[in-house]
């Protein structure tokens, strides 16, 4: 059983759409790692997700941001980051 906040559900749908994920959005564990073990995304997937997030919400994930590891650590972290910084 996976519980998403409404915004986590939105980001989960964006992830599934931007990388053609087979896992349904509703089944993404909000606390599991997105990269590598966990959801199994690779760095190409992460790039595509960051581009989609930039387009959708105007949030640019910065290349020099040491917090990136933290941001990508889970759906929950990513959703919180985007919600905090969104411009659209």
């Amino acid at each position: 059983m996976t519980l998403h906040t409404p915004f986590e559900a939105e980001i989960a749908r964006l992830i599934v759409e931007s990388v053609n994920l087979e896992t349904p959005a509703g089944e993404i564990d909000p606390t599991a790692p997105l990269y590598g073990e966990g959801l199994g995304l690779d760095s190409i997937d992460m790039l595509e997700i960051s581009l989609a997030i930039g387009k959708q919400y105007g949030v640019a994930l910065r290349a020099d941001d040491e917090a990136n590891r933290q941001i990508f650590a889970s759906l929950r972290n990513l959703a919180q980051h985007v919600e905090r910084h969104r411009e659209k």
Partner: peptide, 14 residues
């Protein structure tokens, strides 16, 4: 360095 979640985000910036 490849193999980090943001490797390609860094590459894109360059």
């Amino acid at each position: 360095e490849a193999g980090a979640p943001d490797s390609l985000i860094r590459a894109k910036a360059r």
